[in-house]
Design a protein around this nucleic acid. Structure first.
Lengths: 116, 116
DNA sequence: GCGTGATACTATAGAGTCTTAGGTATGCCC
DNA sequence: GGGCATACCTAAGACTCTATAGTATCACGC
């Protein structure tokens, strides 16, 4: 698949995680809770998917992490967006908009338009 | 994941294939060509993904196939949508609309709205 | 002090999907 | 006969998500 073509729907969560972190640093558990609430409980990140995704994003240097002790006294690994991550977020979001546009156009197409 | 939650983005092609077949029966090669053209060459189904997907859909009884000889004399396996496939297409399309809506809402959200 | 529930992270097995890369074969045109 | 588009199929491998289990801390009620 060349650059002129859209990347397919893998790593959906990645953009959502980046978006969540654009609101400010957060630890894994908070990310999944925010996403669930922000989507009116329609989206849910399983923990088995969340932590591998966080490691994946960190390997790409889109996020960085640090162990911190919260006011509660609990330890947690807090993630934050890097500069590269901010750029990546913008690119991912526009790629997604583009994909959704094309996808929707196909789904709404009528036979007359295609069987020319 | 319960029914009230959206299925995630796997099997993206499935809906697109069903949609293509809703225009009328077609063989595999034509499906991939139509999709490419209908999306202004932005979507492409690789053959390695197409034929497994067609078998998958046939196993679910959403499509059925038949070997036919075209006017050209070439043999081809022609797929068509079943009744169950038509129903599935409608359901899939509305599930996708719902997913895209939620997904877009999250991607367009601002910190103020979420960090209440 | 002890159970319970929410918080917080980690690891693994398994399934499913896409990419990449190859293969076979036919019809058409020169 | 050679090259090209058409038409189909398969396998290896990578990647992502699900399901499940495990560890540990803190707050709360009793």
């Amino acid at each position: 698949m060349t650059d002129s073509q859209l990347r397919l729907l893998k790593g959906t969560f990645d953009v959502l995680i980046l978006k969540t972190l654009s609101w400010g640093p957060a630890h894994g558990y908070a990310i999944s809770r925010w996403l669930r609430e922000c989507s009116d409980h329609e989206l849910r990140i399983e923990e088995g998917a969340l932590y591998p995704a966080l490691r994946r994003l960190e390997e790409r240097d889109w996020i960085e992490s640090e162990w911190r002790t919260a006011e509660s006294g609990r330890e947690a690994r807090v993630y934050s967006l890097t500069r590269a991550g901010q750029r990546a977020l913008q690119q991912e979001v526009s790629a997604w908009r583009r994909y959704i546009k094309v996808f929707t156009r196909v789904l709404e197409s009528r036979p007359e338009e295609s069987l020319s």
